[in-house]
């Protein structure tokens, strides 16, 4: 499933290529790893570990989880203190209830709240652990050696490169998802959004603000 796991490598709008040019999806992968994936997949199907339909269903499920879903969750947390409290206390049951998400068979999830005094930024120094059950596929930079190695030793510099300059007195907590727990950040609700409804608020919540490398957009 390597190809499906790394679906965000091609950004035609950024690399200057003709948007209608054929996609060369073999570009980034060593032929041996593609063969390995295919061989392993075929063996597992043949052995009855799972079916081709199971794989397709999992891909569909993963692709149904996008930052837009995360943004709705954050917007609800901003306007509904009881939901926010439940989310911070135990995220999966809170989401299963309020958003009817099927989170069974997905990793555990903890939601962290950014405040005026404390900023969380999430990484996975060991690999690419990410709250896929909410946000879907992680961005390529999240999995890069550069981000993974630098954010734990110079978080303020890394945040600045994302355009995020925090007040000097705001404490930073770098959260390294090293094991079975995944982390989702509730960004600070932007000033000037008092009285906004969830839909308007959700438009301010970016993927990167839920990882913690950015803040929510200003209204």
């Amino acid at each position: 499933m390597t190809v499906h796991d790394h679906g965000d490598h091609s950004h035609p709008e950024h690399d200057g290529h003709d948007a209608h040019a054929p996609v060369d999806d073999l570009d980034h992968y060593a032929p041996e790893s593609l063969l390995m994936e295919q061989a392993l997949r075929e063996l597992l199907i043949e052995q009855g570990v799972f079916s081709a339909e199971d794989i397709q269903r999992q891909i569909d499920l993963t692709e149904s989880r996008t930052p837009a879903l995360g943004a709705q969750i954050i917007a609800r947390a901003w306007v509904d203190p009881a939901f926010r409290a439940a989310l911070l206390e135990d995220a999966k049951p809170a989401l299963g209830g309020a958003f009817a998400l099927d989170l069974a068979n997905t990793p555990e999830l903890t939601v962290l709240e950014n405040t005026a005094g404390l900023h969380h930024v999430v990484c996975c120094t060991l690999c690419s652990c990410y709250p896929r059950n909410i946000l879907g596929i992680p961005p390529a930079w999240y999995k890069s050696r550069e981000y993974r190695s630098r954010v734990v030793i110079e978080p303020r510099s890394v945040l600045k490169e994302f355009g995020t300059e925090l007040p000097a007195q705001r404490e930073i907590r770098v959260v390294d998802s090293t094991a079975d727990m995944r982390y989702l950040v509730i960004p600070l609700r932007p000033a000037g959004t008092e009285g906004w409804d969830e839909e308007r608020l959700a438009a301010l919540v970016t993927r990167d603000s839920m990882i913690g490398v950015s803040q929510a957009l200003a209204p």
């Binding site: 030793i153 510099s157 404490e171 907590r173 390294d176």
Partner: peptide, 20 residues
């Protein structure tokens, strides 16, 4: 961060949370 990086630390203070 000061405990983790010692002399190598060049910004801070901040904290690191990991699951062990």
């Amino acid at each position: 961060a000061a405990e983790v990086w010692g002399e190598r630390l060049h910004e801070g203070p901040y904290r690191i949370v990991a699951d062990i």
